[in-house]
């Protein structure tokens, strides 16, 4: 592990993006930074994975082929209301990103972004989570 390895706990994230190349390289780089990323290449897959597993943070793309990120966000928020979701979009449409935030997303970033920035956001989101909701349990 690189940088402050000992202090940092491994954060489990779900990385949702239909750009496979991006998801792969990002998960590789994150794995070297105490973040374990589970890869989902579309919205449906992401929701299926989320049903079976618990995550600390979700990183979600807005524009995907099967269903829009906003739709996915709504479903996720229904499933796990306190789950922090960071929107990572290449579309750069601030309106959509703002809509995401109004729907309960933690923050948003536009692609391409600095990895450091993304990881900072992930850590922040993880920290800000209510204590009781940390860990692995699903409400429904």
């Amino acid at each position: 592990m690189i940088r402050n390895g000992e202090e940092e706990k491994i954060i489990n994230i779900l990385l949702v993006d239909d750009e496979k190349g991006y998801v792969n390289v990002l998960s590789n780089r994150m794995s070297k930074r105490s973040i374990h990323a589970t890869k989902a290449y579309n919205g449906t897959e992401a929701i299926q994975i989320l049903r079976k597993n618990n995550f600390d943070v979700v990183v979600l793309d807005l524009k995907m082929e099967d269903m829009g990120g906003i739709e996915v966000l709504k479903i996720m928020k229904k499933m796990v209301p306190e789950l922090p979701v960071i929107i990572l979009t290449g579309h750069g449409s601030q309106e959509a990103a703002r809509e995401g935030i109004s729907l309960g997303a933690f923050d948003y970033l536009t692609k391409p972004c600095e990895l450091v920035e993304l990881i900072d956001k992930i850590r922040q989101a993880h920290k800000n989570q209510p204590v009781e909701s940390k860990g692995f349990h699903i409400k429904w």
Binding site: E19, G21, Y22, V25, G90, H91, T110, K111, P112
Partner: peptide, 8 residues
Amino acid sequence: NNPVAIMV
């Protein structure tokens, strides 16, 4: 943005 992000 997507390919650039991947490249970076």
